[in-house]
Design a protein around this nucleic acid. Structure first.
Lengths: 197, 197
DNA sequence: TGATCTAGAATGAATATTCAGTATTTTGAA
DNA sequence: TTCAAAATACTGAATATTCATTCTAGATCA
């Protein structure tokens, strides 16, 4: 049991990679199985052999994506001594690769398009919550060590995420450099707004 | 030509109102003509009698929407003497009725899902630009009269809009009160971040 | 009567999913 | 070791579904 396992792994990855790119580029609905078939040069049946459904494929990508985000951030986080630097680091991380934001176009579109709460919606809800919790912890840390003022943490967590979420949308119409600058300026303003005296 | 005209006006409004709500709630693609038929209790044919197409209907809504926004804001604006109050007023205006934000789900989804630039996309692009221009002027005014610090205006305009855009997404999961509070807090932070000394 | 308005079934295109069959690899008993 | 059956990986045409749009006919008002 070797060559088969390897093969499966490879095609699954091939499908995942191609469809991820397509979902990001075109959105969830606008990406058809046919598109993925063309991009991967494997049959529709094969896609359904490896993934339960289009929705299941999407779910797989979201989870993978979220997992990777945690990993890469954890690796980076160590290098920022203060919370303020962490927030700048976070902004840069997001600006450099907006795809890393768990709430990108496709997810958001999906979230809005489905009628009934599907498995995917629950997952997304959890991921968003996780993201807010992450922000809360970051801010709490800053408050604890005196870097930040003791504002309403829950509110600030949402605001920080909103800022990045909104920026990720606008950044579609901006150059790399503009994006970086704007993210940075946003953090400047945010921090100046919440910094301790 | 009276009763007929009235009738036409009414059904057109009925269709517009119902579909606006649906587009906002479910997104553009996920809203089917059938949905609108159910919501309005008038037939598919009727919808097509009054509007050229689904896209045409959407376009109509966007324009109407933008027009109304200008009007209502202009009416409100007078009552805010300072720029700072204007920004709070703006936040409240948006929080109270997120539908007023030109870049809501449906618009954004539409913007992303279509392959080729359609008439609608151009409209949306213009509206977004108009919105940023509006923010720029507001901020410039604040700088001119000494309320705000002389930051990078273009960047700030995007940031302010991003903030509201992101908040409008998160507010879907918040109560009315939470929404109001969070919008307000966001402006607190923003202003504290850009206020003159 | 003729213009305007409305209904709702029919059409047709797009597209997610299934299925019946084929090719390849693994397994394990002779 | 060998080789046939089992398991696995895959194909692509067929099917099912969804949905925008059109069409024909009927109702209502001037």
């Amino acid at each position: 049991m070797n060559k088969k396992k390897l093969q499966t792994e490879q095609t699954k990855k091939k499908i995942a990679d191609a469809s991820r790119a397509l979902f990001i580029q075109k959105g969830y609905k606008a990406t058809s199985i046919e598109d993925i078939v063309k991009a991967t040069a494997c049959s529709a049946g094969n896609i359904y052999y490896h993934f339960k459904s289009k929705e299941g494929l999407f779910l797989y990508l979201i989870d993978e994506w979220n997992r990777e985000w945690d990993e890469t951030w954890l690796a980076k986080e160590q290098s920022f001594p203060t919370v303020i630097e962490k927030i700048y680091g976070l902004a840069e991380h997001l600006a450099l690769d907006q795809l890393n934001h768990p709430l990108t176009k496709a997810v958001d579109e999906f979230y809005n398009n489905t009628e009934k709460p599907t498995e995917v919606e629950e997952h997304i809800g959890e991921i968003v919550q996780g993201y807010l919790t992450f922000n809360r912890q970051l801010l709490q840390q800053g408050i604890d060590n005196g870097e930040l003022q003791n504002f309403n943490i829950n509110g600030l967590a949402v605001i920080l995420d909103s800022l990045f979420l909104g920026l990720s949308q606008h950044s579609r119409n901006m150059s790399r450099q503009e994006t970086m600058d704007t993210y940075r300026l946003a953090v400047d303003v945010f921090l100046r707004g919440v910094a301790a005296v």
